[in-house]
């Protein structure tokens, strides 16, 4: 039985136009993914193709005007906005995309300590250990989010999610943009270690090259649909084994490949 299964997920928003005129937009039409124990699934695709919305739908944190269709199953059990509460932050950990999720009025070390288990001294020790692990200085903990650079904020966000001993699934929404090479490798290695311990990982990213270093399979989204689901090994040299035209285009337009000549 897969750890996480999403079948034909759709997400619509009920919005008001001028006056009382109402209209419905449907950014996600039909997404299907599957993640097994210890497996890393990379989710790639166009900006605005619904990658973050998928994560938010699983975590049950969509805005109130969202209408969700299809099914999401965690270890065979259907989950919805109410039942997710018992998994959220425990069996299922989430690393949000936007650095705006950090509290601007709180020192970052205290934000990381909130989610950690144990008594105060254990939490302090754990937080300092996590910072060290991700290449952050102890003194960085005394800073407020506005005093950190983009890449440092990313790593702080990442540490906030490394919490529970009973985590079974990690959803990481774009954990890497703006991070330099060596810090990027720390984050990737950490995700790999997590997966090797039997935890399923969903890695939402634009950085296909980095994702391929650790991913087992790749799902490609476009305009709210899953257009491709293939093993990571299919992405090679000139993309010959990529049958889907969109996937091939995505691969070729990377700056490491043809870049602007692919357009």
């Amino acid at each position: 039985m897969p750890l996480l299964q999403v079948n034909n997920l759709s997400v619509s928003f009920d919005q008001y136009g001028r006056g009382l005129e109402r209209f419905v937009t449907t950014p996600i039409r039909s997404l299907s993914i599957e993640i097994g124990k210890g497996e890393i699934l990379a989710v790639v695709g166009a900006s605005g193709s619904g990658k973050s919305l998928l994560a938010h739908a699983i975590m049950g944190i969509l805005p109130a005007n969202a209408i969700v269709g299809g099914e999401i199953k965690f270890k065979g059990n259907l989950i919805d906005e109410r039942s997710i509460k018992k998994y959220r932050g425990k069996q299922i950990a989430f690393i949000p995309q936007s650095v705006n999720y950090l509290d601007p009025s709180m020192k970052v070390k205290n934000q990381v300590r909130i989610g950690l288990p144990g008594i105060k001294s254990e939490r302090i020790e754990k937080q300092e250990h996590l910072f060290e692990k991700f290449g952050l200085k102890k003194s960085d903990g005394d800073l407020y989010p506005f005093e950190l650079s983009g890449g440092m904020m990313r790593r702080v966000l990442f540490t906030t999610s490394m919490i529970s001993p009973d985590t079974e699934l990690v959803i990481a929404d774009e954990p890497t943009p703006g991070i330099h090479r060596s810090a990027l490798d720390l984050v990737l290695n950490q995700l790999k270690t997590i997966a090797d311990s039997g935890i399923g990982v969903m890695l939402i990213t634009h950085d296909i090259i980095s994702a391929l270093k650790i991913a087992d399979r790749v799902s490609v989204f476009k305009d709210g649909c899953t257009v491709d689901d293939i093993p990571a090994s299919f992405f090679s040299a000139d993309g010959e084994s990529l049958e889907n035209e969109y996937t091939r285009m995505l691969w070729k337009s990377l700056p490491e490949h043809s870049f602007m000549e692919a357009i």
């Binding site: 790639v44 695709g45 166009a46 900006s47 193709s49 983009g150 774009e174 943009p177 703006g178 634009h206 296909i208 285009m249 995505l250 691969w251 337009s253 990377l254 700056p255 870049f259 602007m260 692919a262 357009i263």
Partner: peptide, 20 residues
């Protein structure tokens, strides 16, 4: 300044093409 890090590869390439 990191103009296209948040974007997918196709959008990234087409934006750079336009700007250049």
């Amino acid at each position: 300044d990191e103009m296209t890090t948040m974007l997918d590869a196709i959008t990234q390439a087409s934006i750079w093409k336009g700007l250049l």
